[in-house]
C-alpha cells in the first residue's frame, strides 16, 4: 500500500496558512516522508486534471485554507470533497471566514467600485470592470465569478475537522497530522484545539481583578501598554475571554491584545455577540449618558467584535448595504 495522499489548497487567503506549513521547519520533512502530496499550488506544479483523474476518496485528507468567495474556489472545494476521505478547514478564513469575511459588511459592487475605480491609486477612465467572460481574438478569456458574499468552507462543502488560527500554530498542525496518520481523531466536526477560552492559559490572568471595570476604552496606539497587566483591565479591547485557546498567546506575548482568530468555543454560536455581551458587562457605570459615551468611543465595533468570524456568525453579512 502506498503512502496516504494529501492535498493542500488555498481559497481566499493571504498565503499565511501556506507559510504555516513551512513553519513546521524540519518537522515538515517527517510529514513529507509519511505522505504523498498530490496537490499544493503554492509549492508544486499539479493540475486540476490530475485531481479529476483520482478515484473518489482516494486522497486521504485535503487541507483547505481561505474563505470561499469565487465560483472557482467553490468548484475546487467541491472537487476535493469528492476526492477526499477527510476535509480539514485550515486556518481562520476557511474555519470562520476570517479577514476576507469582513467584506460581508459591504457587497461586490462596493468592492469593485473602490478597487477598480475610486481608490486614489487607480486610473480607470473607461470604467472597465472585471467580467466573467471577455472575448479576444484568440477566443474567450474567463475569470472566476466574484461572489457578493464571502463563505466559510463549511457553508460550501461538508467539513470534517477544523484547525483554527491566523495562521494555525505549528504544534496544532503537527498534532492534527499525527492524529490523522494514527487514526486517533475525535468526533467529526471538532475544532482541533482546546475548548476553553484564552484566559485559561494567559499569563496576564493573575493581574485581572475580580471586578473588571472599564471607564474608558482605549486603542493600542493611544497608550503605553503595560506588558504584564490584563488588557481589559487597561481599557484595551481583548477578545481573549471569547476566543478559543491553543494559539500559544503569540499576540499577547508580543504585547498586543487578542483579536479572536481562533474563533469561539464549541458552546458559543456567535463570538462577536458573546464578546459584546461580556464587554457590556464590565462597563463601569450605570449612567445612561456615560454608558453611551464609553460605547461610542469604540471605533468600528462590528469590525472589532467580528474581526475573524463575520461569515460564520449569526449575522453572516450586512443587509441593505
Amino acid at each position: 500500500m502506498g503512502k496516504p495522499k494529501v492535498a493542500f489548497y488555498w481559497c481566499a487567503s493571504c498565503g499565511g496558512c501556506e507559510e504555516a506549513f513551512v513553519d513546521l521547519a524540519e518537522d515538515i520533512l517527517k510529514v513529507i516522508e509519511a505522505v504523498d502530496i498530490v496537490l499544493w499550488p503554492v509549492a508544486l506544479d499539479f493540475k486540476i486534471k490530475d485531481i479529476e483523474k483520482l478515484h473518489d476518496a482516494e486522497i486521504a485528507v485535503s487541507f483547505i485554507n481561505g474563505a470561499v468567495r469565487t465560483d472557482e474556489q467553490e468548484d475546487i472545494s467541491k472537487l476535493l470533497r469528492k476526492k477526499s476521505g477527510l476535509i480539514v478547514a485550515f486556518g481562520s478564513c476557511a474555519h470562520l471566514g476570517g479577514i476576507p469575511g469582513l467584506a460581508n459588511f459591504v457587497n461586490r459592487d462596493k468592492i469593485f467600485d473602490w478597487v477598480y475605480k475610486n481608490a486614489p491609486s487607480v486610473v480607470n477612465n473607461n470604467g472597465v470592470f472585471p467580467q466573467k467572460k471577455t472575448g479576444v481574438i484568440e477566443g474567450d478569456l474567463t475569470l472566476p465569478e466574484f461572489y457578493d458574499t464571502v463563505y466559510t468552507l463549511d457553508q460550501v462543502i461538508d467539513v470534517d475537522y477544523y484547525i483554527p488560527g491566523c495562521a494555525p500554530p505549528p504544534d496544532l498542525i503537527l498534532k492534527a497530522i499525527e492524529a490523522i496518520l494514527s487514526g486517533t481523531l475525535p468526533e467529526k466536526g471538532t475544532v482541533l484545539a482546546p475548548d476553553r477560552a484564552l484566559c485559561e492559559t494567559c499569563k496576564r490572568r493573575e493581574t485581572k481583578p475580580e471586578k473588571a471595570a472599564i471607564k474608558e476604552i482605549k486603542r493600542v496606539h493611544q497608550v503605553m501598554l503595560d506588558p504584564e497587566r490584563c488588557f481589559l483591565d487597561q481599557g484595551i479591547i481583548c477578545l481573549g475571554p471569547a476566543t478559543r485557546d491553543g494559539c500559544g498567546e503569540r499576540c499577547i506575548n508580543a504585547n498586543m491584545p487578542c483579536r479572536g482568530c481562533f474563533g469561539p468555543t464549541s458552546r458559543v454560536v456567535d463570538q462577536g455577540a458573546k464578546f459584546l455581551s461580556a464587554l457590556a458587562s464590565i462597563i463601569d457605570t450605570n449612567d445612561e449618558a456615560e454608558i453611551r459615551k464609553i460605547t461610542n468611543s469604540i471605533v468600528d465595533p462590528a469590525g472589532i467584535f467580528y474581526y475573524y468570524s463575520l461569515p460564520a456568525s449569526m449575522l453572516r453579512r450586512k443587509l441593505n448595504v
Partner: peptide, 8 residues
C-alpha cells in the same frame, strides 16, 4: 477559563 467576567 476563569476570565471572571461573571463574578461581579
Amino acid at each position: 477559563s476563569g476570565c471572571m467576567i461573571c463574578i461581579s
